[in-house]
Amino acid sequence: MAAEQKFTPQTWPESPEQATLEGKNKFLGFWFFLGGETVLFASLFATYLALKDSVPSDTHAKAADLFELPLVFLMTMLLLTSSLTSVFAMYHMKNYNFKKMQQWLFITVALGLGFLGCEIYEFNHYYHEFEHKFTSSAFGSAFYTLVGFHGGHVVFGLSWIIALMIRNAKRGLTLYNAPKFYLASLYWHFIDVVWVFIFTVVYLMGMVG
């Protein structure tokens, strides 16, 4: 089977993710999916902006009361760095260095888990300290939906990368799984793109009212 063919770094093609027709299709299809995701998140941002600070009474916490910069800064650094580490992983993928790719993916996953931990802490904090809940106000609903959808993407991305790492741990890189690794890394970058807007629009702009 051509897809299971073994390579050496010398024979490994220049763009392994697009070396087969299946890879080409997946590559393009996934980018289109990301185009759709752009609209999905834009819709969530739009809703958040329309419902920001829209609470039933003054006893409910508003954006400026809730957010704290240090935690958000930490989360941003974790996710930005994980974006870089997944670029490193793809660098080694292109050089046909499976072991190093796995190592960098492992670091990516670790950073992603750190981000997720912070987010869980953060939500828990808002919930208990501020009574800021999904069901307490339209603002709460919009906030948790936007940030939660992003968090859900993080969970899915992590599960995807972990599944790929475990599944392919023994057999190394082939033209069959190279597109899969590449797409998972694209997905991870896209999560980072969304986060850049979340920390800007939700947190930074939330702090200034």
Binding site: W31, L34, G35, G36, E37, T38, V39, F41, A42, S43, F45, A46, L49
Partner: peptide, 12 residues
């Protein structure tokens, strides 16, 4: 991607 950005921008 640009088409998605345009549609998203108009929505926002």
């Amino acid at each position: 991607m640009y088409s998605g950005v345009i549609v998203g921008f108009v929505t926002i």
